[in-house]
Simulated scan of single mutants.
Amino acid sequence: MQILCKTLLTIIFSGIGAMHFFWAFGGLWGKQLAIPTTSDGVPLLDPGFGACVVVGLFFVALLLLTHINLSRFVPLLYERVLWGIIALIFFARAMGDFQYVGLFKQVAQTDFAYHDTLYYTPLCLLVFSLIVVKIAVR
C-alpha cells in the first residue's frame, strides 16, 4: 500500500509541478481553465512568473518529501504532523472558499467551475486520501 501511495503521489506531484513550471515560462495550454473566474468571466487571479514558480517548487518539495524518510532525521511524530498539515492543505482546497472554488462553490456555471468539479477538487481529495493512508500505514 505504501508503494502504491508513493507512486500515485509522485505522478500527481510531478504533473502539477511540471504544469506550473510550464505556465511560469510562458506556456498557455490549460492556464485559463485553472484560474477561477466570476460568473462574468473575469479572472480572480493573474498569476505571473513568480507565483507559478513558487507553486511549482512547492510540488517539487512535496515530490521529494514523498521519497525521503524524514524519520531518520526527526522523530516519526514530526514527520506525521508535517504530512498531516500537507493533507489538511489539500482537504481545505477541496472544500474551497464557498464562493468560486471547491465542493461548496456557489458560482458553478463557469469553465473553471466545470473543471474544478470534474478534476481539481476530486484530485485534491485523492491526494488528501493518499496522504492519510501513507501516514496510517507507516
Rank of each mutant, 00 (worst) to 15 (best):
G84N: 09
G84S: 03
D97W: 06
G48E: 09
A51P: 00
T37E: 15
A51Y: 10
A51T: 11
D46I: 08
F13M: 07
G50Y: 10
I3E: 10
A94E: 06
C124F: 04
A113K: 04
F21W: 11
V53M: 08
I135S: 03
F98Q: 13
G48Y: 01
Q109D: 15
V74G: 03
L63N: 09
V107H: 01
L8P: 04
F128E: 02
F73D: 06
C5D: 12
M95Q: 08
A92L: 13
F58V: 14
L88F: 13
A92D: 10
G17S: 13
H67F: 14
P36G: 02
T121I: 05
T121E: 05
I135T: 04
G27M: 10
L4F: 15
Y78M: 15
A34V: 08
V137C: 09
H20V: 05
F59D: 01
S39C: 02
V60C: 11
L4Q: 11
I131V: 14
Q109A: 11
F59A: 03
V132K: 06
D97I: 10
A18G: 15
F58N: 04
V101K: 03
F49V: 04
Q2P: 00
I11S: 08
I16L: 14
E79T: 14
L62V: 03
G41H: 09
S71V: 06
L125A: 01
L57V: 15
G30W: 10
I135P: 05
H67V: 09
V101P: 02
G26R: 01
D97S: 05
L76H: 12
F22H: 15
V53E: 02
N69Y: 07
V81P: 01
G26M: 03
L33Q: 12
G50N: 12
C52Q: 12
L33F: 13
A94T: 07
I12R: 02
A92S: 14
F112D: 01
G50W: 11
G50M: 12
A87N: 09
T7D: 04
I3N: 12
I131P: 04
A94Q: 07
S71T: 08
W29S: 12
L126N: 02
P122K: 03
V81R: 13
L44D: 02
F58P: 00
Y119S: 06
V74Q: 10
G96Y: 06
S129M: 08
D111A: 15
W83V: 03
G56A: 13
S39V: 11
A87H: 09
L8C: 12
G27P: 02
Q106A: 13
